[in-house]
Computed example of a mutant assay.
Amino acid sequence: MREKKKLIPFSIIEAANSGDAIAIQYILKHYEGYIVTLATKTLTDEYSNGYFFVDKEMQEQLTTALLQMILDFEI
């Protein structure tokens, strides 16, 4: 059975939209795993061994995009 993901309370979204640093950190922490999953790449060596790594530049771009969406959110 699939575990349900908790939703972010609307009051935290409102506070983050107003610029509250703690609320913004809460939202970033909530999406941290998803962002890392999106930024994970696979490299293959000459022996066809696969290696996973997190593309830090892509992770920063996704985090920045999320921050921009939080601040631009129309309530």
Rank of each mutant, 00 (worst) to 15 (best):
K4D: 14
K4W: 12
K4L: 15
K6R: 11
L7N: 13
P9S: 09
P9K: 10
F10K: 07
F10G: 05
I12R: 04
I12Y: 07
E14A: 09
A15D: 09
A15F: 02
N17I: 01
N17M: 00
S18E: 06
G19K: 00
D20M: 03
D20K: 04
D20G: 02
A21I: 09
A23Y: 01
A23T: 01
I27P: 01
I27G: 00
L28E: 07
L28N: 02
H30V: 03
E32W: 08
G33F: 06
I35P: 02
V36F: 08
T37F: 15
T42H: 13
L43C: 10
D45C: 13
D45Y: 12
S48T: 12
S48H: 14
N49L: 09
G50Q: 14
G50N: 14
G50H: 14
F52T: 13
F53T: 09
V54N: 08
V54R: 11
K56T: 14
Q59S: 13
Q59R: 12
E60H: 11
Q61D: 12
T63N: 07
T63D: 05
A65D: 14
A65K: 14
L67W: 01
Q68R: 04
Q68C: 02
M69H: 06
I70T: 02
I70S: 00
I70R: 03
L71C: 02
F73G: 00
I75Y: 05
I75G: 02
I75P: 06
